[in-house]
Computed example of a mutant assay.
Amino acid sequence: MENAVKRAGGRPRSFDRDAALETAMRMFWKHGYEGVSFQQLTAALGIGAPSLYAAFGNKEALYREALNRYADKRGASDLSFMEGARSAREAVRLLLDGTASGLVDPEGEVGCMLNTGMIANHPDLEGLARDLARRRAQFRALLADTLQRWVEREQAEGLSCFVTAVMQGMAIQARDGFGRDQLQIVVNEALTAVPDEVGR
């Protein structure tokens, strides 16, 4: 592939940027940021380092793009599926049931890239860690906004913190080998803490 005729910037004509981003996303999703080396990326993508730099910049820039792709694939910015629920508990059930299924979906990788992709990090990666924390905070805020359909703002914010903590714990448990049935037990227990009143 490296012997193919090159485009400007060093990329071969057969280079498929979208497919390369998908491969990189799945590697980061499965192994975390620091669990994937630059050499592993170039080998998996079938390109040399100059081609990878030309296409994505450095590894950190590639990871940010992979995070964006993951968020789009997993609907991290779209909670509209909750809006038809009659109560906060029903809405949260829809979210947690979907989370439990997604964490062990055979079409994807086990776990959650946003929650388990960088639990600990080298000090040099503090900026990237802050970006992940910001993305998680944005999801908590979106969930709180959505939950206001059924409960007051203060309760919505508390519920959002609780539900996202449950989701993060489920992501770790999925990595530890929990299956769909075991994750459902967690969902069922968590739902007992969520109000069941009909929307206000």
Rank of each mutant, 00 (worst) to 15 (best):
R136F: 04
T42G: 03
A66Q: 11
F139K: 09
A71W: 05
M113L: 11
A43Y: 04
Q40H: 04
Q40M: 04
G32N: 03
N68G: 10
R149A: 04
P106K: 02
Y33W: 10
L79Y: 10
G111D: 00
F56D: 02
V186T: 10
A156V: 14
A49M: 05
F139L: 12
I47Y: 07
A156K: 14
F139T: 09
L103P: 00
G199A: 15
R149C: 04
N188C: 10
R26K: 06
T146V: 07
G102P: 02
Q168H: 11
E189F: 06
F28T: 14
V198A: 13
D196K: 15
E154L: 14
E157L: 10
E154I: 12
M118N: 01
N3M: 15
P106F: 02
E197C: 08
E109P: 00
C161V: 08
F56V: 04
Q155D: 12
Q173Y: 07
T164M: 12
S101M: 02
P50H: 10
F178E: 07
G179V: 15
Q148E: 11
V110T: 07
N115P: 00
A190N: 10
G57R: 12
R153F: 03
F56C: 01
Y63T: 04
Y53S: 09
V194F: 09
Q148S: 04
R140P: 09
L132D: 01
N68F: 01
E109F: 00
Q173G: 01
L142C: 01
R135G: 07
L94R: 07
P12I: 13
P12N: 13
E107I: 02
A156C: 12
P123K: 05
A76W: 13
